[in-house]
Computed example of a mutant assay.
Amino acid sequence: MRFYFDVTNGEHSRDDIGTELADRDEARAEALAVLAPIAGDVFPDEKACSVSVTVRDSDRRPIFQASLALVEGWID
């Protein structure tokens, strides 16, 4: 089954190629696996930002979304 992974991290990147995976559980795992490296590239340069991945199924309907957010500030 083909799944599409759209990424938003200040800009929206739509996946038009997709990835063949066995099922929804594998698609979820893949979305979570790609989220951390993307966030690692973005977060060090930003004071506040978020990164999200939306998974679409073979009919290109959104079926899953995961996001990470960073909010930072000095306490004193």
Rank of each mutant, 00 (worst) to 15 (best):
Q65N: 10
A66P: 06
A31Q: 01
L32I: 08
V42F: 07
I75H: 04
T54R: 08
S52L: 06
E20P: 00
S67G: 10
D15E: 06
R56G: 00
L70V: 02
I75K: 10
S50Q: 06
V7W: 03
V71S: 10
V7R: 07
A48H: 04
D57P: 11
R56H: 09
G73L: 02
G40Q: 15
H12G: 00
P37V: 11
V51S: 02
D25F: 13
F3L: 12
A29C: 02
F64S: 07
A27L: 11
F43T: 13
R14Y: 10
A48W: 02
V53R: 00
S50N: 09
L21V: 12
E46L: 11
E72R: 11
A29P: 00
F3R: 03
E11H: 01
E72Y: 00
A36N: 07
L32C: 03
D59C: 01
S13Q: 13
M1T: 12
W74N: 11
A31N: 02
T19D: 03
C49K: 03
A33R: 15
A31P: 01
D57M: 08
V55A: 12
F3P: 08
I63N: 03
A39Q: 01
D45C: 01
A27G: 07
T19F: 03
L70K: 12
G40F: 04
R2A: 07
E20K: 04
S67R: 07
E30T: 12
G10M: 07
D45T: 12
A33K: 15
P62Y: 00
I63C: 15
K47C: 03
T54A: 09
G18M: 08
V53F: 04
P37E: 06
D41R: 10
Q65R: 14
F64R: 01
D59N: 11
L68V: 02
D76G: 15
T8L: 09
A39P: 09
C49D: 12
A33L: 13
A27T: 11
N9V: 05
S58R: 07
G73Q: 03
